[in-house]
């Protein structure tokens, strides 16, 4: 494992993208910052630009309007970047599969840009904050194999 990846594990910076979520996943993502969960103790913080991000936390069903913007955000993020598809919507469009304003699912949208993208799925509607922390721990394992 390169020193770069060893260091990356200690300070994963997260950029949060809402591509059409109902807010539930988003308030649970914000909840991670607050005293009960406090992910900053693992070196993770929410950052303001995808260019600073090591993790893209994507929530929501990826509507047609948000689709090209999500691809642009992925292009802007420095690689390697781990995409967390948070919630049932981001994982498989959930209850909105048949709705008319859906783009492609989050994983397909990102694979259209980069076929080898690292994507972790966090199922649940919404997933509990503990599940999101578990997903990041799994992302560490992926970084180990790089």
């Amino acid at each position: 494992m390169a020193v770069k990846h060893w260091a990356l594990k200690k300070s994963l910076w997260v950029y949060h993208v809402n591509t059409g979520a109902c807010n539930n996943c988003d308030i649970e993502v914000l909840d991670l910052l607050t005293p009960r969960f406090d992910i900053e103790r693992f070196g993770m913080i929410l950052v303001g630009s995808p260019r600073h991000a090591d993790v893209l936390a994507v929530t929501g069903t990826c509507t047609r309007q948000a689709m090209p913007r999500l691809q642009e955000l992925y292009r802007q993020a420095a690689k390697p970047v781990v995409v967390l598809a948070i919630g049932s919507c981001a994982g498989a469009q959930g209850i909105f599969t048949e709705a008319y304003h859906m783009g492609s699912p989050v994983d397909e949208t990102i694979r259209a840009v980069d076929p080898n993208a690292i994507i972790a799925y966090v199922p649940g509607c919404p997933p509990k904050p503990e599940a999101m922390i578990a997903a990041v721990v799994k992302a560490w394992d992926v970084i180990d194999t790089l």
């Binding site: 309007q65 048949e98 709705a99 304003h101």
Partner: peptide, 14 residues
């Protein structure tokens, strides 16, 4: 508008 438009009213009809 429309980044978050999911067409819920139409979806409900099904």
């Amino acid at each position: 508008i429309s980044y978050n438009h999911r067409g819920i009213e139409k979806l409900d009809e099904s």
